[in-house]
């Protein structure tokens, strides 16, 4: 199941459509690493709203995506973690570091806008 990746301005949006196997997750990681360079994206949003299970492998791969994209000059925001999924992740002992999180797509875009603006001000 390939994850569609849309370009919106400076950002990429990966909308997960269905349950992902480990191989699908790794392909998403590789696709994002490539496209961030091709489109010179500053931010990447990964929408996980439809995922009902985020186990150790999924969380590790999302963290890796955050680390890799950071090295490619982009920030990663994970959006749409469902409350029940968050609960299971916490019980399992998983923490989502190296990425930002936001409630939904709209929230993540305004968050990235603020982050980019702050970054530019800092750089000047």
């Amino acid at each position: 199941m390939e994850v569609p990746i849309l370009k919106q301005g400076d950002y990429l949006i990966a909308s997960i459509q269905a349950a992902l196997s480990d191989a699908d997750l790794l392909r998403l990681r590789d696709d994002l690493a490539q496209r961030v360079g091709r489109f010179r994206s500053r931010g990447v949003i990964v929408d996980v709203t439809v995922l009902d299970v985020m186990d150790s492998f999924a969380v590790r791969t999302l963290r890796n995506i955050g680390q890799i994209l950071k090295m490619r000059g982009a920030e990663t925001v994970i959006v749409g973690i469902q409350p029940e999924v968050a609960f299971a992740m916490v019980q399992l002992g998983l923490t989502l570091t190296d990425v930002w999180t936001a409630l939904d797509l709209e929230e993540s875009i305004s968050f990235l806008d603020r982050l980019m603006k702050a970054g530019r001000t800092q750089g000047e």
Partner: peptide, 10 residues
């Protein structure tokens, strides 16, 4: 419950 279903699936 949905919380339990997801705990079981995880």
């Amino acid at each position: 419950s949905s919380t339990e279903q997801i705990a079981i699936a995880t």
